[in-house]
Design a protein around this nucleic acid. Structure first.
Lengths: 206, 206
DNA sequence: GCTTCGATATATCGATTCGATATATCATTC
DNA sequence: GAATGATATATCGAATCGATATATCGAAGC
């Protein structure tokens, strides 16, 4: 999951760890307070597997694609990297990473994976679902809708046991929240359908 | 957090692991899918620390308080426990636990702790907040309200960066959800105030 | 009676994630 | 030039997850 999030951000442009964390937590917010204790190990995992590479910061300007300069010759030579950064205008001792072709393949795979479908996974996938083709995106949204529908049914039938006031209130609020989420997804799906229909029409008339 | 949840349920009556998990996940639902891989270790931790003890099931009937019969003489003698259960009417090889005085003290401490205030912590504490005295309960709810208010402020100011359609939709939905949660808490607080005012009046007139 | 099946029940393993903490760099302010 | 706060990387132990193994029991079906 963290892997998917990191790859998704790096697909745009190279970034360093602190930046990744800042962007993810400001977008995912309270849903997922990513910690450095999971981020940095994840970066190392991804680097070891060849999905990302450390790059020289600012190597790619606004052009964003392709032309980065790999840092370090295979060795995780930290001291050398520090020296290199210290000599140039640079800021702090950052380590920026860029996604590789293998990383893009992994990203596509993780994004399409139907296995994990908890709250976090949905939010992260939604963030990057513009990378999916229209049909896959629609399928993704409809999968979520089905899941929420199912949940709502379970939440709607009144509790079997006797529960106290606060528990009941929590349960009721959760059912309302699910309904709220469902309405939202339904609208996203409607928009998606509209747009895809529009695209087809344009395609036909062109 | 799991500790608090377990202690809260055991404060009502002795239960076994599977039952604890079932009750928690049907109440906390998608917010927290507790796994056996965390539940059983947590039970062992609690037992080692003396907060709970293994008891002979059905020792306490509807009377629920006090009169349980501790199982096993200090040794975690699994095989023996199985034999013991197999001889009597029993069902499966269950291991039921009851809360101790020390456990109740720990429960009260965890419930009052203002340190952890994520989504899970709030939900779990709310489930058991009837164990708090009215003033502490009100303080707890108001702490949550302040937290949500703060979050809403952050979510309301439009994003600094350019983000795509789906990201924006996610952020907007999250802001609406926070508002929804806030309305709910506000109502809980209002109810709480009404009730506490009512109690005081009754006390005065009695 | 026998077998199969699904719900109940406990347990453990490796991997991931969390939360706290350590350490350094740089910019700003006093 | 000292203090402070934001930036940045890193690591540790503990908690949690997800998958898996292994039983037991009740009910259904033959």
């Amino acid at each position: 999951m963290l892997e998917l999030a990191v790859l998704g951000l790096l697909a745009e442009q190279p970034r360093h760890g602190y930046d990744l964390k800042k962007r993810l937590s400001e977008t995912l917010g309270p849903l997922w307070g990513i910690s450095f204790g999971s981020l940095y190990p994840a970066l190392r995992r991804l680097e070891r597997s060849g999905a990302i590479v450390e790059v020289d910061e600012d190597a790619a300007g606004p052009a964003a694609t392709g032309s980065f300069v790999p840092t370090g010759s295979l060795k995780g030579d930290l001291a050398a990297a520090r020296m290199r950064l210290r000599t140039r205008p640079s800021r702090r001792t950052r380590r920026a990473y860029a996604i590789t072709d293998h990383g893009r393949a992994l990203f596509a795979e993780l994004l399409t994976d139907e296995g994990d479908d908890d709250e976090r996974a949905f939010a992260v996938k939604l963030l990057f679902c513009s990378h999916l083709d229209p049909a896959a995106r629609l399928a993704f949204l409809e999968r979520r809708r089905a899941q929420l529908n199912q949940r709502l049914v379970a939440e709607r039938k009144p509790a079997t046991r006797t529960i106290d006031r606060y528990s009941r209130s929590l349960l009721e609020h959760r059912a309302r929240s699910t309904q709220h989420d469902l309405d939202w997804i339904a609208e996203l799906i409607a928009q998606e359908r509209d747009e895809q229909a529009g695209d087809r029409t344009e395609g036909a008339t062109a």
